Simulated scan of single mutants.
Amino acid sequence: MNSITPVLDLHCDTITNGLGRHYDLADGIARFDLGKIPDEFRWCQTCAIFIPDEYRGQAAVEYYERALEHFQRQLELYPQRIGQARTMTQAEALLEEGKTAAILSVEGGAALGGRLEMVQKLWDDGVRMMTLTWNGENEIGGGAATDQGLKDFGVEVIREMERLGMLVDVSHLNEKTFWQVVEKSEKPFLATHSNSRKVWDHRRNLTDDQFRALAERGGIVGINFCREFLAGDPDPTAEQMVRHIWHFLELGGEQCVSLGSDSDGAIMPSFLDSLSGVAVLRDAMLQSGLGEELTGKILYGNARDFLRRTLG
């Protein structure tokens, strides 16, 4: 793409945020807004339908359906600017056309309403990855704020997801649930928006052992831009963010590190308040000694290769 820099971001909450606040993808309100993507970038964005923990059962299913309708409306409103990709091949074709590629995901398996057949429904809707829980407990298992592990229904869900090809996302799991997923799953899985707990000790970040297990399975991690998960400082710097990247690389993660911004679902450092901040992050990565090739892999190539292998 010549001087154009491709970016693949594994997680944002813009669809659900837009549903709740009644805005569209080009209203100029969201951080991930079609009008705010700098000309130097081509953008592939995984858009999550986030299910808040207060929704369970049929209420969660209905919430998912409302958010799905909002997502589909965005595609209808801006067909010349964004398209849905169900495979990485489709995403790359959209980028080549100069469009933004949107991959649909779900954050919170409560969206299933406790019904296994809903996994097929989500797959047919184009959902290609699902975070099993948010912070609380749902029908699948326990999130980061609980000590509940993986439930029997959760094991069934993982098997059905893997049968279909839907990716299991372990961000937001507690350690007990995480290791049970490692035991019960067979295919590569990912953590779409999680950082290093060694660099900053937060329950939402991954331990070194968790990262190694994910990498050994052929998975990938998206670095989260949320201030709370980066450092104890009120406004972390790009250099502090790069420390998470370097630590994962030191654990052997050259093929396993990517971006998972959590845009419109978290408070960002000031240098990342807009999408142009990714250029600041890119420069900080280069200045840290990562080099052009590895920086490009973290911005785009690693996630592209992972999704090529898993989604086609």
Rank of each mutant, 00 (worst) to 15 (best):
T5P: 01
T5D: 04
L8I: 12
D9I: 02
D9N: 02
L10G: 14
L10W: 10
L10N: 13
C12D: 15
I15E: 08
T16D: 06
T16C: 11
G20P: 00
Y23L: 01
D24M: 06
I29L: 05
A30G: 13
D33N: 06
L34H: 08
G35T: 07
P38K: 06
D39V: 08
R42G: 14
W43V: 01
C44A: 15
A48R: 04
I51M: 00
D53Y: 07
D53N: 03
Y55L: 02
R56S: 05
A60E: 06
A60I: 01
E62A: 15
R66C: 14
Y78V: 14
R81F: 13
Q84C: 10
T87H: 02
A91L: 14
A91S: 11
L94Q: 14
I103W: 03
S105N: 08
V106Q: 00
E107C: 02
E107T: 01
G108K: 02
G109Y: 00
A110K: 00
A111M: 00
A111T: 00
L112Y: 00
L112W: 03
G113H: 03
R115H: 10
E117P: 03
E117Q: 14
D124W: 02
R128N: 09
M129I: 13
M129H: 11
M130R: 06
M130K: 09
T131S: 06
T131K: 04
T133K: 04
N138D: 01
N138H: 02
G143I: 00
G143C: 04
G143N: 03
A144E: 11
T146F: 07
D147A: 13
L150Y: 09
K151H: 15
K151L: 15
G154I: 00
V157T: 04
R159N: 15
R163E: 12
L164C: 08
G165A: 07
H172M: 08
H172L: 05
L173F: 04
N174Q: 09
K176S: 04
T177P: 13
Q180L: 11
E186I: 11
K187N: 06
P188M: 14
P188I: 13
P188N: 13
F189W: 10
L190F: 10
T192K: 03
S194M: 10
H202M: 03
H202A: 12
R203M: 05
R204W: 06
R204Q: 14
N205L: 04
N205Y: 02
Q210W: 04
R212P: 01
L214D: 04
R217M: 08
G218N: 03
I220C: 02
G222Y: 02
G222P: 13
N224I: 01
L230P: 08
D233Y: 06
D235L: 04
A238G: 11
E239I: 14
Q240S: 07
H247G: 09
L249K: 05
E250G: 12
E250Y: 11
E254Y: 06
G260L: 09
G260T: 07
D264M: 01
D264S: 02
I267L: 13
M268I: 01
L272M: 12
L272A: 13
D273T: 09
D273K: 09
S276H: 05
A279D: 06
D283C: 06
A284N: 02
A284V: 04
M285K: 07
M285D: 12
L290F: 07
G291Y: 15
G291R: 12
E292H: 12
L294Y: 12
L299V: 11
G301R: 01
D305A: 03
L307A: 07
R308N: 15
T310N: 11
